[in-house]
Design a protein around this nucleic acid. Structure first.
Length: 565
RNA sequence: CGGAGAGUGGUGUAGUGGCAGCACGAGUGCUUUGGGAGCAUUUAGUCCGGGUUCGAUUCCCGGCUCUCCGACCA
């Protein structure tokens, strides 16, 4: 490719608004341009990177038995109704209508579509298992796009769906895809951690996120020092040490408490440790249920765990008025004697303490010596606590908090969809209809590219890993008056083309050499080849790796050899 | 959705209640080629709507858009 003909240009300056490094360099290098927030044009350079990423994924998926298909992007809304995901999906669905009034969901994930396709075929156990995948544009009505390609509203995703006769067979595929992902990301120069996570609206019982550790990432997870676990904050369990569980239960007491509304106010007023206080958080779910989450005072409520415990689709904090309407008082909420209309969900940490203190459901009144079972009986009890850095894993290893970019995930779906959707069944050996056991597996292509840029750059631009660089070689001539040099570069370019080498030739005649070098650094091809009077004299070419400082003089033959694939 | 900030040529920015300036870019000509060259010349701009005002790019109100933080989402 001649750079003079390349559509899209590098830019010397960049808006201060572009904070994420990947965003900045992808913009400056001429890989992408923004349309509106969270929607991007991919320019030729960006497309080359994207195509290479696609190729790597495709190769690895095919190698492992998956087959590529494509579904329409507009999904009939009826399908989403069949699984009730028109209601349950957390992100607001993008819905479009055609002129006859038919409604379609702009696909953000394609479980329903794939099952709808599969059920057209009268699948028998002999057809199983299979894994079908696609690359397609996905739409998510994110409340807040950010960081260039890091979080977008429209992006290319590889999504795969596997169908099995039973769990055992599925588990093999889960491992198979796990391996595929490790191979895929390794080829792109990304080191990933498989983080155990919550399934969210996708459904199913367990899943793993593939996360690239990076401070720009929004995925918060914890790893234990013993290397035994890497788990997302949403579902991380930890050891809740006993506090004063041996203490004898004392008599319940209500006392006047002229204090502020915070946990600290309670500690100051009673001169007791924070862990002995009961933390009460009132929520409202999407069915307008009032939910009181209670937990040991030194811990925080994890809303995802809470949702899972009580089976809620969405949660929000209750307003002060709602708390009063439920017969309590902000800052003085208590599970003791709370209205029957309030669902009380208790964290099991409350079993590690005795004689707790906290509000009395009225202003400036507190209860002392509150004990679970004796004074209140939660409607639900379980783990709803948020794990934090420094806590101990169940195996008593210290947890460390990390941030990362989620580039892919693999989900166990089990019977989640096949039970909800009609005819999502196969015929087994005994001629009986059985629901499919399923899994699904996604990779966000755009975000993966951003992750590579976040991980591989220096102060001058992106340093692309060879496998996904827009070009392998950036060829530059320092031409001057000497016609011979121009001729030489053209000759070398011609030869490289003949070899079908992946080369970007900076043939622009009207710009200085400094600009050419700066552009080469910005674009970040792995090899830079320079032809000048100096190299011509020595009958060599100059070779420099983007990720190294030294330049080497090599013979033309060596160069041609290098780029031979 | 809550909070904060910002919208000025293609890009990055300055400034002002009364002529909108600079740099980069782009075009032309000459010159120039080892780290974003030089001279000359041309080109192009105040987000939208309303208000205050003799006069608004500037002040006020509304809208839209973007960025950041949070919430949400994965």
């Amino acid at each position: 490719m001649r750079q003079s003909k390349l559509f899209g240009k590098t830019s010397k300056t960049v808006s201060e608004n572009l904070k994420a490094v990947s965003h900045k360099y992808l913009h400056q290098g001429g890989f992408i341009r923004e349309s509106v927030a969270g929607r991007y044009y991919f320019l030729p350079l960006g497309m080359r990177v994207r195509d290479k990423v696609i190729r790597i994924i495709e190769e690895e998926m095919n190698k492992r038995g998956a087959q590529k298909i494509i579904t329409p992007i507009l999904h009939p809304k009826e399908l989403w109704k069949e699984t009730n995901r028109t209601e349950s999906v957390g992100f607001e669905l993008m819905i479009v209508k055609d002129r006859r009034g038919s409604e379609f969901v702009l696909g953000g994930t394609a479980e329903e579509m794939i099952i709808d396709l599969v059920r057209k075929f009268n699948i028998s156990y002999k057809d199983l298992p299979f894994n079908i995948y696609q690359f397609s544009q996905k739409f998510r009505d994110e409340l807040r796009a950010r960081g260039g390609l890091l979080r977008v509203r429209e992006f290319l995703m590889k999504d795969a769906y596997s169908f099995h006769a039973d769990e055992k067979d599925f588990k093999k595929e889960y491992q198979n895809m796990w391996k595929a992902y490790e191979a895929i990301f390794a080829k792109m120069g990304l080191e990933t951690v498989a983080v155990e996570s919550d399934n969210g609206y996708i459904g199913g019982e367990y899943c793993h996120e593939f996360v690239v550790e990076n401070t720009e990432g929004e995925s918060r997870f914890l790893v234990s020092d013993d290397g035994q676990c890497a788990v997302h904050e949403d579902i991380a369990v930890f050891k809740k040490e006993e506090k004063n569980a041996d203490e004898k239960e004392k008599e319940l007491q209500e006392i006047k408490a002229l204090r502020g509304k915070t946990m600290e106010d309670g500690v100051k007023f009673h001169q007791l440790p924070i862990w002995q206080q009961i933390k009460d958080v009132m929520f409202v779910d999407n069915k307008d249920r009032m939910i009181l989450a209670i937990i040991r005072g030194d811990l925080d409520v994890n809303e995802v765990k809470l949702m899972n415990l009580i089976g809620a689709g969405e949660l929000r904090h209750a307003t002060d008025e709602e708390i009063r309407k439920a017969g309590s008082e902000p800052g003085f909420i208590s599970p003791v004697g709370i209205s029957k209309n309030v669902l009380v969900a208790a964290d099991d940490s409350l079993r590690t303490i005795k004689n707790a203190y906290g509000g009395a459901n009225k202003k400036n009144a507190d209860l002392l010596n509150v004990n679970i079972d004796r004074d209140y009986k939660p409607n639900r009890e379980g783990d709803i606590a948020m794990a934090h850095e420094g806590y101990l894993s169940p195996a008593e290893s210290v947890l460390t908090g990390k941030n990362g970019i989620e580039v892919g995930n693999i989900f166990q779906l089990g019977y989640y969809y096949s039970e909800k959707m009609k005819d999502a069944v196969f015929t087994d050996k005994n001629s009986e209809k059985k629901p499919f056991y399923m899994g699904c597996y996604g990779i966000g292509i755009d975000r993966t590219i951003a992750a590579v840029a976040e991980m591989h750059h220096d102060e001058k631009g992106i340093v692309w890993p060879e496998q996904i660089a827009p070009f392998q070689v950036h060829l530059i001539g320092i031409i001057g008056k000497d016609k011979k040099i121009k001729k030489e570069v053209e000759m070398i370019y011609g030869q490289l083309q003949k070899q079908k080498a992946d080369v970007l030739y900076d043939d622009r005649e009207d710009i200085g050499v400094g600009a050419k070098f700066a552009d080469a650094d910005l674009i970040g091809c792995p090899y830079r080849v320079v032809i000048s009077s100096k190299t011509l004299e020595q009958k060599k070419v100059e070779l420099k790796k983007r990720n190294e400082k030294e330049v080497f003089l090599v013979s033309k033959e060596e160069l041609f050899d290098l780029v031979k694939k």
